[in-house]
Computed example of a mutant assay.
Amino acid sequence: MTADLKRIVIADDDDDIRALMVIAAKRAGVEVVASVDNGRDALAAVCTGGIDLAVLDISMPGLNGVEVAESIRTHDASRGTLILMVSASVQLLTDHGVVAEWSDGFIIKPFSPRVLSARIRELLGLEATA
């Protein structure tokens, strides 16, 4: 049954927020393939292929979330990966044109793990868990 699990990568440079994201993802019933603190590691994890969703903070060291999203969309092995952007600023999301051009959705910090879990399930077409 684990072969049917959706696979995701989580990237946020804040350890506490990243830990909440992992909890939310596990509640959503997905496999967290990588949980990283920078854009370069996120891109490397996604580009190995077979990743269904990348949850990316916009502001990260190395490569920011927008740069990672652009690379995901242009790399053959990852082109079909869904992207959920996370930011503390609606302004950042709209300034970069991220929602329309590079991502499949967004969530604003602070968020509850329950809300993020529901958003992950929605994007991946998974039924809600009890």
Rank of each mutant, 00 (worst) to 15 (best):
A3K: 12
L5Y: 10
K6M: 09
K6E: 07
V9L: 07
I10L: 15
I10E: 03
D13Y: 00
D14C: 09
D15S: 12
D16V: 15
R18L: 10
A19M: 12
L20H: 03
L20Q: 10
V22Q: 14
V22N: 09
V22T: 12
V22A: 14
R27D: 15
V30S: 06
E31N: 14
V32G: 02
A34Q: 12
A34G: 08
V36T: 08
V36D: 09
D37G: 15
D37T: 14
D37R: 13
N38W: 07
G39P: 13
R40N: 13
D41M: 11
D41P: 03
D41N: 12
A42T: 11
A42P: 11
A44S: 11
A44I: 06
A45L: 07
V46Q: 03
V46W: 02
C47H: 09
G50M: 11
L53P: 07
A54V: 08
V55W: 01
V55A: 03
V55S: 01
L56S: 05
I58L: 13
I58K: 03
I58C: 02
S59P: 00
S59G: 00
G62P: 10
L63R: 02
L63H: 04
N64A: 05
N64V: 06
G65Q: 03
E67R: 04
A69L: 04
E70P: 01
E70N: 11
S71A: 15
R73C: 07
H75T: 15
D76H: 11
D76Y: 08
D76V: 10
A77V: 06
A77C: 00
G80R: 12
T81D: 02
L82G: 11
L82K: 15
L82Y: 01
M85Y: 05
V86P: 06
S89I: 03
V90T: 06
Q91T: 13
L93S: 05
D95A: 14
G97D: 11
V98G: 05
A100F: 03
E101S: 13
S103D: 03
S103K: 03
S103M: 01
F106H: 13
I107C: 04
I107W: 04
K109V: 09
P110I: 11
F111H: 08
P113H: 06
P113D: 10
V115Y: 00
S117I: 03
S117D: 02
I120A: 05
R121N: 01
R121P: 02
R121M: 02
L123M: 15
L123E: 08
L123Y: 00
L124T: 02
L124G: 01
A128H: 13
A128E: 14
T129N: 12
A130S: 14
A130R: 13
